[in-house]
Design a protein around this nucleic acid. Structure first.
Lengths: 221, 221
DNA sequence: TCTCTATTAATCGTATACAATTTTTTCAGT
DNA sequence: ACTGAAAAAATTGTATACGATTAATAGAGA
């Protein structure tokens, strides 16, 4: 793996897992020292992260971890609702026991993280479950897009999520795997659609006007 | 508009319109001289174009215009088939006479370019028609993705397109506008789906094994 | 003590420098 | 002529330099 890619993944991981929370500044000097490369290399990955909406770069102010807006949150979730269920039919053509077992293992790991209240881990694993499913559809272009949406969702969940965002009344991911094992395409699509809509509706997105003041920005950090 | 953005758009335009054909090299020195900025700035936009799949950067070899593979072509078109028809319902909620007239004008311009055999212009305008429709859906995240898919389609059409790729047996874009004016959501979705599938099937994507040698690469340029 | 302003420090944007690599050219040998 | 190796030129990767902008600090005045 190239050095750039390595740095990119480490920073992205830190962002998605909230070691770097939304709003955190990412000074180039600090990063370049930490990773032992010049600012040139750091700037390259920061610009990439910015294009992918994980950080925001303001002219002369540098990069900071993106604090997704409510409309961004809605649009990302709506995108997933539109795309992911539709990937199920293609996914099923590649479904076999080996895949099933692979995803079972992931679902178990997820559940464990959830029960141990390791929220960051649970969110990460959920994201991974979804985009690995997307990858299995065979369309790399769409899978890549879904992957980014899932990572962005991690940021969104951390900002607007509630307890209910992770645990879902439709059960956990292993339930989807049961349906996939049975080969019920329509049922799986419905499950996925319902699951994502549930996550979306569990977000805290409504605020009264007077609550709209961004105290975080005024006093925070 | 920032200077970077300006340079980005000019190069992208040149690529999509095939002033810079697939495979063309993009030496940083030449570009930096042409745009009157240092290589630093040029590298920034080349890296962006690479992330968006318009150019390919090979280590120590620099950037060249992407020559989309057949599987890439299929995946991009399949992505559009999956997404664009689904945007119609949301699109219709923003549809009014002003929008209708705007798109009518675009369709007419398109038709004219087509009739005058200005293929590059026609392809460009087709892309724009599609992604402006996507924008009207209101979901900026999806619209941006569709925009990139449309531009990538321009590259794909230029590489694998036939005469039939532009002219379509389902008539031209103005026909879709008629359906939208009538507010027939399902009908519009079907039209869009059929339209994109037609474009996909018009591409020349099958080659016999012995034709698979890349003569372009062996002797071309 | 608080606020406002001036100074200092931190940070960024862009150009440039130079080594490493690739590409092109040259030219001897067949 | 054609091939292949050596030399020259072109090109890229990365670090560094420095002016410009922003953020942090300190200190005077209310």
């Amino acid at each position: 793996m190239s050095n750039d890619e390595n740095i990119y993944r480490q920073i992205l991981k830190a962002i998605v897992e909230h070691q770097l929370p939304p709003g955190a500044r990412l000074p180039e000097d600090r990063l370049s020292e930490a990773f032992g490369v010049s600012r040139t290399g750091i700037r390259k990955v920061l610009q990439r992260l910015a294009l992918e909406h994980f950080v925001v770069i303001e002219k002369n102010k540098g990069a900071q971890v993106n604090r997704p807006s409510k409309t961004e949150a809605i649009e990302v979730l709506d995108s997933r609702i539109l795309i992911e269920p539709q990937l199920i039919p293609a996914l099923l053509t590649h479904w076999d026991t080996a895949q099933s077992e692979r995803f079972r293992a992931m679902a178990i790991e997820e559940k464990r993280a959830e029960e141990n209240n390791q929220l960051a881990d649970a969110i990460q694993l959920t994201a991974r479950f979804h985009y690995e499913l997307a990858t299995l559809s065979g369309n790399k272009v769409l899978a890549h897009f879904v992957e980014q949406l899932c990572y962005r969702s991690s940021l969104i969940l951390a900002a607007y999520g509630t307890r209910g965002s992770v645990g879902c009344d439709c059960g956990d991911h292993s339930q989807l795997l049961d349906i996939l094992d049975q080969g019920h395409s329509d049922k799986a699509q419905n499950w996925m659609s319902h699951h994502l809509k549930h996550i979306k509706s569990s977000l805290i997105l409504e605020t009264k006007p007077e609550e709209n003041i961004d105290f975080q920005k005024l006093f925070g950090r």
